[in-house]
């Protein structure tokens, strides 16, 4: 693991890194290095499996984070490759040429976050949301309560208990059960 991370540092440049456990490391890299790095990892290291591809909306920074979780199935180790991309452009390189199942991840991220992966098949094809006509719902500026009020009317008489206030009444003003 150390050797592989050292090679990534030397060849691609690491913006930030974090060693969670012996068998789990995280590296943050620049967007232009994503495809070369993932290709190198798949072809020349034991990290051959794309276990997960997910996105995070960093609204305050104006960025999306894409996280590729690679796994070494023999050595039972995981390497997380994270990349920040601009929120305005919201475009990232597709990795479906390396792993065919990335098409489904990219289709879902395209629907839920509005991030476009040029060249990936099934971009814009509905995955869960059929007939969606609003901004993508996993973006943090999407107001889910307002959308719910417009589309899903509630039954009258529903009471809402604010958890913070309710827990405050039970365990004191701090609002925490444990310190």
């Amino acid at each position: 693991m150390d050797e592989i991370i050292q090679r990534i540092r030397d060849n691609f440049g690491v913006l930030r890194e974090h060693r969670q456990r012996d068998d789990l490391a995280e590296v943050w890299i620049e967007p232009r290095h994503v495809l070369p790095l993932l290709t190198w990892l798949k072809e020349h290291t034991p990290f051959v499996q794309l276990t997960h591809l997910s996105a995070v909306d960093w609204l305050e920074d104006g960025e999306f984070q894409l996280t590729y979780l690679l796994t070494d199935p023999v050595g039972r180790r995981s390497l997380m490759v994270a990349v920040r991309i601009s929120r305005e452009e919201a475009t990232a390189e597709s990795v479906h040429t390396l792993w065919a199942h990335a098409v489904t991840y990219e289709q879902e991220i395209n629907e839920m976050f509005g991030i476009h992966f040029p060249g990936s098949p099934r971009q814009g094809v509905p995955f869960i949301l059929e007939g969606w006509d609003d901004i993508p719902p996993m973006r943090r500026d999407f107001d889910t309560v307002e959308y719910m009020n417009r589309h899903h009317p509630s039954r009258p008489g529903r009471e809402h208990t604010d958890p913070r206030r309710y827990i405050g009444q039970v365990v004191g003003e701090k609002g925490y059960l444990h310190d």
């Binding site: 719902p137 999407f142 889910t144 309560v145 959308y147 719910m148 899903h152 039954r155 529903r158």
Partner: peptide, 16 residues
């Protein structure tokens, strides 16, 4: 199915 339950504020589940 009655009033949305714990998913009452979800964009994707019906409330009634």
């Amino acid at each position: 199915t009655i009033n949305g339950g714990m998913y009452w504020d979800s964009y994707n589940t019906i409330n009634r």
